[in-house]
Amino acid sequence: MKWLGLIALVVGAAQAAVPGFDISHYQSTVNYQGAYNSGARFVIIKATEGTTYKDPKFSTHYTGATNAGLIRGGYHFARPASSTGAVQAQYFVSNGGGWSADGITLPGMLDLEGDCAGLSQSGMVSWVTSFVNKYKSLTGRYPMIYTTNSWWNTCTGNSQAFSANCPLVIARYNSVVGTIPGGWPYYTIWQFNDAYAYGGDSDTFNGSITQLKKLATG
């Protein structure tokens, strides 16, 4: 059963949700154990950007998160103007963004934000497709996609090409998640503010801890 089917089983549950957060080198110190003790169970950590940047805090954050008992994974900040999606997926996987079916590693996340990098909507869809397909071929998993409703509509024309396979991480700093773009029936993770008490941005997983572990298992 695909992850979409697994998560669908709990979408209608009584507001099942699991707290989490995301971090990068901008958070030089993170209280991983404090986050876990407060209820957080996952963290997404910046690994790479484009084809030349490796986050200098990735290993420290990854180790700290692991030691605290958090389910963790890496993310890649896309630079579509600099190279193909496939090249960036390879760079990401080679520098922390891989995946293994150990129950504690989230599939990698493709971070899509900012401007449209000079690409047409069809060109951006092709770029994302290139990244997604290469990541899948390298790891056996489809990556998560992080975006906003506005970016997705502007830069991809609200493409529905990824809703069947790639879990959606939606960013909206509000008390409600708002419109879900791209044909996704629901979000998997919602980043709802940029001021997490223990470091980084606040996230919530749309399901139970059992479903979160399934996402990390494949």
Score class of each variant (00 low, 15 high):
M1Q: 11
W3E: 10
L4A: 12
L9M: 13
H25P: 02
S28Q: 15
G34Y: 03
A35S: 11
S38E: 11
V43P: 01
I44L: 09
I45R: 06
G50N: 02
T52S: 14
K57L: 11
N67D: 09
N67S: 11
I71Y: 01
A78R: 00
R79P: 00
T84D: 05
G85E: 00
Q90V: 12
Q90A: 14
Y91P: 08
N95I: 05
G96T: 00
T105F: 03
L110G: 06
L110H: 06
D115V: 12
C116P: 01
G123Y: 07
M124N: 07
V125D: 04
S126L: 13
S130Y: 11
K134Q: 15
K134D: 09
K134H: 11
Y135A: 09
K136M: 09
M144L: 15
T148E: 15
N149G: 10
N149M: 10
W151K: 07
C155K: 02
S159F: 08
F162P: 06
S163C: 15
N165S: 14
V169F: 06
V169M: 08
A171D: 03
A171F: 04
R172F: 05
N174Q: 11
S175Y: 13
S175V: 13
V176M: 11
V177D: 04
I180E: 05
P181C: 05
G182H: 04
Y187L: 08
T188R: 00
N193P: 02
A195H: 12
G199K: 04
D203N: 15
I209H: 06
T210F: 09
T210R: 10
Q211M: 13
K214T: 14
G218E: 04
